[in-house]
């Protein structure tokens, strides 16, 4: 068995007719924290969904633990997903359950643990994200940042071996951000898991990631360890790492020329 728990080979995918990914290659070695970065709308969330088998590639493949994800039948896919934990971009907490029940949900679904054990585990996970005291709140009574932290606790509830984080730092204050940042690294090392982090926060993720992929225009535009990328002279990487407005990464969704667009709208 190879050392890469997730492998993406020449993957292409698009919604409707527009191709979003055009031949992406990535590997995620066991035990590492790997970041995927790229502009808004560059297809990072979509990439995580492809890994999770919620979308089918147009061509190419994603392999998880040596198995091609889109060729799995239902039970094969279920088996793969049990190895994964995913933090959704919007949290996606179950609104009809309390914080406690949200974190307990995967345990109740997939294990026969006695209630006392579930309670201990839930407390442990909630304590790690600093929300043990909020366990009796309803999911709808949380702030955005709190909801995301609860979602993180839920994502790692069953100690998965692949943890995917979609924007774990968005909407967090600097203190929580630092805590969560360390938590991701520590969890990864304690569980011997592999973490995939999708984010925009260059500084945070550079401090914990082992390897970073930059996605732009549907391909991997740059990759390397954070040290390499900091030093990189690629204009694209430079722009991203230093947050410059001008550069090869377009801020705009593909659109006709601005001037033309405005002049045309005058005429209608």
């Amino acid at each position: 068995m190879s050392d890469n728990i997730v492998e993406i080979d020449n993957l292409s995918f698009g919604y409707k007719n527009r191709l979003l990914h055009k031949g992406i290659n990535m590997v995620f070695p066991r035990g590492k924290v790997v970041a995927i970065m790229g502009g808004s709308g560059s297809g990072k969330t979509t990439l995580l969904r492809l890994i999770g088998g919620q979308l089918k590639p147009v061509s190419g493949q994603v392999k998880v633990a040596g198995k091609v994800v889109h060729e799995q039948d239902r039970s094969g896919l279920q088996a793969l997903r049990r190895k994964m934990g995913m933090l959704f971009q919007q949290g996606a907490l179950f609104t009809d359950l309390s914080v406690y029940e949200n974190v307990a949900f995967p345990m109740r679904e997939h294990t026969d643990l006695p209630e006392s054990m579930i309670r201990d585990l839930v407390m442990m996970k909630l304590n790690a994200v600093g929300l043990r005291g909020a366990r009796n709140l309803k999911a709808t009574e949380l702030s955005g940042g709190m909801a995301r932290r609860v979602a993180l606790a839920r994502a790692v509830a069953l100690d998965p071996s692949i943890i995917m984080y979609d924007e774990p730092f968005a909407g967090l204050d600097p203190i929580s951000m630092a805590v969560i940042c360390n938590l991701i690294r520590n969890l990864n090392d304690a569980l011997g898991a592999t973490s995939i982090i999708v984010t925009h926060d260059v500084q945070e993720v550079f401090s914990i990631a082992d390897y970073v992929y930059f996605v732009a225009n549907g391909v991997v535009a740059a990759e390397g360890s954070p040290e390499d990328l900091r030093k990189s002279e690629l204009p694209f990487v430079h722009q991203f790492v230093h947050g410059e407005v001008d550069g090869p990464v377009p801020f705009h969704y593909a659109a006709p020329d601005y001037r033309q667009d405005i002049l045309r709208s005058r005429n209608v």
Binding site: G52, Q78, M86, F88, A92, L93, E109
Partner: peptide, 20 residues
């Protein structure tokens, strides 16, 4: 409304990803 909202807020996706 409940199921539609669960879908809109990705709760159903999240469930699917938890192999449920």
């Amino acid at each position: 409304a409940e199921i539609g909202l669960m879908k809109a807020t990705e709760q159903l996706s999240a469930m699917e990803m938890m192999a449920v």
